[in-house]
């Protein structure tokens, strides 16, 4: 197991180097110019020249790349062109809100999605199944930004339970942080719950018709142990894969929700970086995303061994 993990980690470094090369050159291939965007209407050739030199954008590309990598290896992400702040602190301040948002949304999705899927499969083709799948279908169809606006209208404006938007740090005010977190988590989590419940239902249906479930029932195991101990555990593999992938997307893909709730997540930061062609910032954020993705995939793979002991990775 340990050897497997080490091998995967070494592979991960390779992936990250590849990502770094790709993002470095791709972001420069898109048309646009960070300095001219920065200066906007106050453009002047002398200032422009100065800023190009200041940010080293006049050096040959390979030189810029190696300098960037050289600094990254030493833990120095450099400075953002647009905000002039240290990129490490820009990303650092966004990581926690994003993780809370993703974790909260995923928690809602798992807590709702998996039980709903199990019930739907166990009571397949009954009213329970239809109700669960009806809501799942709605959950899948409703765009999350629209859902977000509805949630705001219902829970903030009419009921006044939660603030419309904004963010509070959990270190300053844990209750306030939670109140700010619930609506965006719901807006993101409901759609996810729908896809997780459908996934769980279909794999559960498959597993429940397997011979070993019949055997389990035949030897007199209780329904509870049969369904949760044997069937669910085996049905979890594909669901876990979906959860892992979705978690990866959530970390960077919640931009719309972040914007709507003016929630300072990292997706917002990436959009900001791209639309300003803030090269160093784009590169660093993408690299961080890639690392998180690689790590989540690794964790998903390791969790397989728990759910399916036949997988041993040796």
């Amino acid at each position: 197991m340990l050897r497997y993990i080490i091998r995967r980690l070494i592979q991960a470094v390779g992936v990250l180097i590849l990502v770094s090369i790709l993002v470095f050159f791709l972001v420069r291939l898109i048309p646009g110019d960070p300095i001219r965007l920065l200066l906007g209407e106050d453009l002047s050739p002398t200032v422009e020249q100065q800023l190009i030199q200041k940010w080293g954008l006049d050096a040959p590309l390979y030189e810029q790349y190696f300098l960037w990598m050289f600094n990254i290896v030493q833990g120095d992400f450099g400075q953002s062109i647009r905000t002039q702040e240290q990129i490490a602190s820009l990303i650092g301040s966004r990581i926690l809100p994003t993780m809370m948002l993703s974790a909260g949304a995923m928690l809602i999705a798992v807590c709702v999605g998996i039980p709903a899927g199990v019930v739907a499969a166990y009571k397949a083709k009954t009213g329970w199944d239809h109700i669960a799948m009806f809501f799942a279908l709605i959950g899948l169809c409703v765009p999350h930004f629209w859902l977000a606006l509805l949630l705001m209208l219902a829970f903030s404006l009419n009921l006044g339970w939660f603030p419309v938007s904004g963010y509070t740090s959990p270190f300053v005010d844990p209750v306030g942080a939670l109140r700010h977190l619930i609506l965006p988590c719901l807006a993101l989590g409901i759609g996810l719950a729908a896809s997780i419940s459908r996934m769980t239902r279909s794999t559960m249906l498959d597993v429940l018709s397997q011979d070993y479930i019949r055997t389990a029932r035949a030897k007199g195991l209780s329904e509870r142990v049969t369904v949760f101990g044997h069937a669910l555990k085996n049905a979890m593999l594909p669901t876990i894969t979906v959860i892992g992938l979705q978690l990866g997307f959530l970390l960077g893909g919640a931009v719309v929700i972040e914007e709507l709730f003016s929630y300072p997540g990292i997706g917002q930061l990436l959009i900001f970086a791209i639309s300003n062609r803030d090269y160093p910032l784009v590169q660093s954020v993408v690299l961080v995303f890639a690392s998180v993705f690689v790590m989540i995939n690794l964790l998903v793979d390791i969790s397989y061994a728990y759910f399916d002991p036949r997988i041993r990775y040796e």
Partner: peptide, 18 residues
């Protein structure tokens, strides 16, 4: 000084007196 990029959200926030 709050940043609310979405106009609908700004209006909802106005109505909620936020």
């Amino acid at each position: 000084w709050r940043f609310l990029p979405d106009a609908d959200v700004r209006l909802t926030s106005m109505r909620a007196e936020e």
